[in-house]
């Protein structure tokens, strides 16, 4: 599965995207965030306030309770500041 990061999430993790193999027990967005936080200090730092992280699956906004089965692309980013 492809993970994509933007803005300060990208800067803190230190990469703009990566391919990951998710463990079978990771089935929701919230579980994905918790699993990523366990992968190292840079992830812990980027995702420490997990509730403020916005998530898109296949380029559409989702809540943290969303199932991630069937996702090709999951993006993690801060609250948006466009316009």
């Amino acid at each position: 599965m492809k993970l994509i990061y933007f803005a300060w999430v990208r800067e803190r993790i230190g990469k703009s995207e990566e391919d990951v193999e998710l463990p079978a027990e990771v089935t929701t967005v919230a579980e994905l965030l918790a699993w990523l936080k366990s992968r190292g200090e840079e992830y812990e730092n980027a995702l420490q306030h997990a509730r403020s992280i916005r998530v898109a699956i296949n380029q559409e906004h989702v809540d943290h309770g969303e199932k991630i089965g069937g996702a090709r692309e999951i993006a993690l980013f801060p609250p948006m500041t466009g316009g």
Binding site: H61, F77, P78, T81, G82, G83
Partner: peptide
Amino acid sequence: MDYLKSRAPFWK
């Protein structure tokens, strides 16, 4: 504009 501000994926 309200929706662009809160939902369009842009960061400044």
